[in-house]
Design a protein around this nucleic acid. Structure first.
Lengths: 327, 327
DNA sequence: ATTGGTTATGAAATCGGTCGCACTTCAATA
DNA sequence: TATTGAAGTGCGACCGATTTCATAACCAAT
């Protein structure tokens, strides 16, 4: 079934059939004749042929480090919800945190395979930036700020800053911090800086040293909490860069006879389901992950429509979730 | 940059350039000449044109109910890991548990947009089956058995059967069960049947009534545990169809002064990260989600290669994870 | 009567590849 | 020496749509 056969069956030209599907000029009679034939045959225009001819794929590429993760999963769902309203499809690539794969997919995608790209990376190398600069298709970065690029991200700095101030207000004076690698701009660098600045302002600059780096897992949080406790045994508050780390920390502390939150108050980031698993639930920071995915798509769509996007960056606010505050 | 320009620059025919990229006969000199031009220009064949001509898209469509879920996320990662080894791309569609969307995507995909489809549905309607029957492209169902279809799934029945027997062996005599909707073949029907048969064989058929249905959330598990406890107040064991439900149940029980696991032993299914969150960790069942994704792709690839697949169904075993067994 | 704008139409070019086919060359086999 | 066949080559058709263009019909305004 191709357009020529349909045209012949309906007694019109191929162009007329094309117009039928693309809202071109067409008389009522022909429209009806074509409609009938299309219905009978179940004909659908070949997407591949359309892509070739129009040079639009109606697909966007999404590159993420992993997908079996609460935060990224939610970003992807946000992306998809807006995307298929617009009749676009999503080509998903997972890099497993391998920067080489990231570049590989980026180049594959911007070789006109898709109309646009959404990139959720963690660490940006100069190579990344170069590639983004001369990309043939628009790219939106999600999850962190990147100079000169369209990006949607959260205000990680202020989130952790406020969280730390909250701890201080609650009278916790001896804070510790379990962070992510500093190359990770959002989860690593910004959150730690928020912590540092808050303790600094409160006149407790020395607390910035109560700091260690963990991976994004419960096990790593457990281990690093142990290391931190051995070094600084009189902590009364612990802020972690992610909920998983925080969970691991709680397990370590309780496993070693330390009362949480009475002796040590613990907080994470992410407002994930697991943050609500402890009793009482963790203090955490809520991120609008779905929203950031949705906005990323909107920015992309704007660029696909007109040449330029009105928004170049969108910074989303976070809010602290403190289950104890209700009581 | 198209193949004709490259051919001209290299002083060869278009066909030669095509052969260069597709390992056809080509002399060493021409190969070198083309290689040079390709390198200089950075030329890459148009994927759209290739698709149109060869009628192969090198994409497979994946339809899932949601993506921000531990189990499905892991299936998707399994799929992707095998997929891009084979140089295929993944088109991801999320249905949000809407059977209408499921059919919509199925029809969009099998309208030759992709070379194959992997479908992770929950509930199969007759409409689904009809659509699968006359699909233009091969489909592999993942997560549940479906007569006459290529499928990869877990042995849910025996998993819950064994789990229930374990509870009985541990001396738990008054069991309850929180299940999923029965239309969900794997998580709903099979797991409940495993429970029923196990208690039946143990001469406790009446326990099959200690049964209620919850949704796939912690909140629903919490609520339904409450309902169950009010109806049957002397339970000493509770088996839940998923870890989320089990977590909710634990929270309810502990929130009402019931000791877990001393008074009531609780188990879930899924071996998810959250199952390890409670102290002590939940009893749960390990599913090889990544593996099922990988196998689904392999089955698809076999069908894409030769016409038929050797494997028509693959049933994966599960094993019980009992953290208490170590002590 | 002429001009001009809008609607309607199909022939033909185009997008950028692959593939069937016919042809040549040259070494191996009978 | 004749025959085979594998390697190497390019022409031209083809995949299935969209889009330009030339043309025509129709109606209103000059």
């Amino acid at each position: 079934m191709n357009i020529a056969e349909i045209a012949e069956m309906a007694g019109v030209s191929r162009a007329a059939v094309s117009r039928y599907f693309n809202n071109g000029y067409i008389s009522e009679e022909k429209r009806e004749a074509i409609r009938k034939v299309v219905e009978e045959t179940g004909y659908r225009p070949s997407i591949q042929a359309q892509m070739l001819r129009t040079k639009k794929t109606r697909m966007i590429g999404v590159i993420v480090p992993k997908v079996a993760s609460a935060s990224i999963g939610r970003i992807v769902e946000g992306i998809l919800s807006v995307l298929n309203e617009s009749g676009y499809q999503m080509l998903l690539a997972v890099t497993q945190n391998d920067p080489r794969k990231e570049l590989e997919y980026l180049s594959a995608f911007h070789g006109k395979q898709v109309d646009g790209v959404i990139l959720a990376a963690t660490v940006f190398t100069p190579e990344h930036k170069r590639m983004l600069k001369n990309s043939a298709v628009p790219v939106v970065v999600v999850g962190q700020y990147l100079a000169g690029q369209c990006a949607v991200y959260h205000d990680d700095y202020h989130a952790t800053y406020e969280l730390t101030k909250l701890f201080l207000e609650k009278g916790r004076q001896r804070l510790g911090f379990i962070g992510a690698i500093r190359q990770d701009q959002a989860a690593g660098e910004d959150r730690y800086r928020g912590f540092c600045d808050a303790v600094q302002e409160a006149g407790h600059g020395e607390l910035a040293d109560h700091y260690t780096i963990a991976e994004f897992t419960v096990a790593s949080g457990y281990e690093k909490a142990g290391e931190l406790m051995k070094k600084y045994d009189n902590l009364d508050g612990l802020i972690c860069a992610t909920d998983s780390m925080a969970l691991g920390a709680v397990r370590y502390l309780r496993g070693h006879g330390i009362k949480v939150p009475e002796q040590i108050l613990v907080a994470g980031h992410g407002d994930s389901e697991i943050a609500r698993m402890t009793i009482p639930p963790l203090i955490t920071v809520h991120y609008s992950y779905e929203k950031s995915g949705e906005i990323a798509v909107q920015m992309l769509m704007e660029q696909l429509g007109r040449g330029e996007s009105a928004m170049k960056e969108v910074k989303l606010g976070c809010h602290i979730v403190d289950p104890g505050a209700a009581s």
